[in-house]
């Protein structure tokens, strides 16, 4: 790089600004030092460098400084938070509901209170409760009562709320008891009893040769309900009058023996039952019809002797 009149200002400017390479700097400096006019010009160019006056300073510097906003967090706050957390955790553990019997330790004795679910199980159908708990006894016939309906037995539960539900169910069931069914049941019982009596009498007749004059024959003791049997036979008088006369004037043993004699002679009997349960004094009439003979029996309940 060679200095001349056209480029010396620009080259010296680049030399001053540091825009030249080291090699160019050395070449330019050699030329400047070798030429007096160039050296003088170089001195003027170097004088254009501005030198900052370090004594000139800004005095309001402190007013520009800002204080850091430091949030002071007291140390005990952390420990308070930790302590509070521990207390809450302990309280949760202590008071958390558990499925254990409750223990009361204040009195010194441990009292175990079994947990019981008080909530009634009302979702179960009431009909099922009734079927399980209610037992309806067979009706018993007492002498003065036409039909006796004993209240159903209730298997009581220990749970009081369950009992309430059961009692309600029982009441409802009692109201729904079909009286017709009870009447029918009652008829079947009476019929069975009569059949049993008839069979017993037949057995007695078959075991022993009946004899009207035999006084050794023991009377058959019948359990309740007692049955009045009235035999009617053809006589010159009115048949009923004859029967009444016979029954009235003879002992039961005699009446029974006579009846057995007649029964033994019966062949191809026709038995007809006439129940009459709807009246205040229910009865069951039995008509026996055979060749040459006709018998009528009326059964009525007696009062219960125990009552």
């Amino acid at each position: 790089m060679k200095l001349n009149k056209d480029n010396y200002e620009l080259v010296m400017f680049d030399l001053l600004e540091g825009n030249l390479s080291e090699r160019d700097e050395l070449l330019v400096m050699e030329q400047i030092e070798g030429d007096e006019s160039l050296f003088r010009e170089w001195k003027l160019v170097k004088s254009t460098i501005l030198i900052a006056d370090k004594e000139v300073t800004y005095y309001g510097k402190e007013s520009l400084l800002k204080r850091e906003l430091v949030t002071v967090v007291p140390m005990f706050t952390k420990w308070m938070a930790v302590a509070a957390s521990i207390c809450i955790l302990a309280a949760v553990i202590v008071f958390w509901p558990q499925d254990k019997p409750t223990e009361i330790a204040d009195t010194g004795k441990k009292i175990e209170v079994p947990l019981e679910k008080v909530t009634p199980d009302i979702q179960e159908p009431l009909v099922d409760d009734f079927l399980v708990q209610v037992e309806v006894e067979n009706p018993q016939v007492t002498p003065n009562v036409n039909k006796v309906i004993r209240r159903p037995n209730v298997v009581e539960k220990q749970s009081s709320i369950k009992d309430v539900a059961a009692i309600l169910a029982i009441k409802e069931a009692i109201q729904n008891i079909d009286e017709k069914q009870l009447s029918k049941h009652y008829e079947e019982i009476q019929a069975n009893k009569l059949e049993v009596i008839a069979n017993q009498e037949k057995e007695i007749i078959s075991e022993r040769e009946p004899s009207i004059e035999d006084n050794k024959i023991e009377p058959i003791l019948l359990d309740e309900p007692e049955v009045k049997i009235v035999f009617e036979y053809p006589m010159e008088l009115n048949s009923k009058q004859k029967v009444k006369l016979f029954v009235t004037n003879n002992s039961p043993r005699r009446i029974k023996e006579k009846a057995i004699t007649f029964i033994a002679k019966v062949s191809n009997p026709k038995i007809r039952l006439k129940p009459n349960f709807k009246s205040k004094r229910p009865s069951l009439e039995i008509e026996l019809e055979t060749a040459g003979y006709q018998a009528t029996a009326s059964i009525q309940p007696f009062k219960n002797r125990n009552n």
Partner: peptide
Amino acid sequence: NECVKQYSDGIFR
């Protein structure tokens, strides 16, 4: 604050 200390004088000059 560091900027204030470093550059305020230079800007002022």
